[in-house]
Nucleic acid binder design. Structure first.
Lengths: 108, 108
DNA sequence: TTTAATTATGTCAAATATGACATATTACGA
DNA sequence: TCGTAATATGTCATATTTGACATAATTAAA
């Protein structure tokens, strides 16, 4: 089952609802985490594609390298707001973000 | 120009970067705000479609009525995280959210 | 209008995210 | 190997968001 997955998520700091503690994540919890992971994944691949370091990206959005690292690691304690702002700064359009969530974006 | 729009945004609490103070929003700022408005708009229409009151929705997501009202008003001080969680609780799928951002979702 | 239900607005203490910073770890040439 | 750039991990004070609550404004039905 998802014991391994859950352990991984909890290490990243996610708080899993008690009802899901033994029965697995609710579909909503799953979808929410999927969205986060897909966004962070796109951040990493787009940054690499542009050849930027984490420090360069951090400066571009007025943040710090450590925060970029946490974003790309899918860590909790990072808001979707920060991820979306970062993606936009990387040149990813609203439409591309939409495609990503639909499952229609090849991230290269 | 966007003086009216800016005033409206500032009333909602948005902090507009100083460089954009007179020259207008950057494309990234614009896109970010658009995303927020589209999500809040979908929250309102979906809730109404289901015939839920703000209080009912608030209870469903473990929040409060005032927070729902602020979300639907496109107020700042509401994270995308909360909006996304709310949409998922309303039965909106990740794919539908993607379509929304792409501009391919008829909100009825 | 009068009433009741719903929604909007404002405030608060507690919880969480923030950038900055230090430092550990890894990756990769020379 | 060694040295260095890049990335990961952890901590901190500050800022922002949180749900809860009070209450005003709006809406709708009688």
């Amino acid at each position: 089952m998802d014991k391994e997955k859950r352990k991984e998520l909890e290490e990243k700091g996610f708080q899993i609802g008690s009802a899901a503690e033994f029965l697995g994540l609710t579909p909503e919890e799953e979808a929410f985490i999927e969205i986060r992971l897909e966004l962070s994944s796109l951040i990493k691949s787009r940054r690499n594609k542009l050849g930027w370091t984490q420090q360069q990206l951090a400066t571009a959005i007025g943040s710090s390298q450590s925060r970029i690292a946490k974003m790309e690691a899918g860590d909790s304690g990072i808001t979707l707001d920060l991820m979306i702002k970062t993606l936009l700064k990387l040149g990813v359009s609203k439409q591309e973000i939409g495609k990503l969530l639909e499952g229609n974006l090849e991230m290269v």
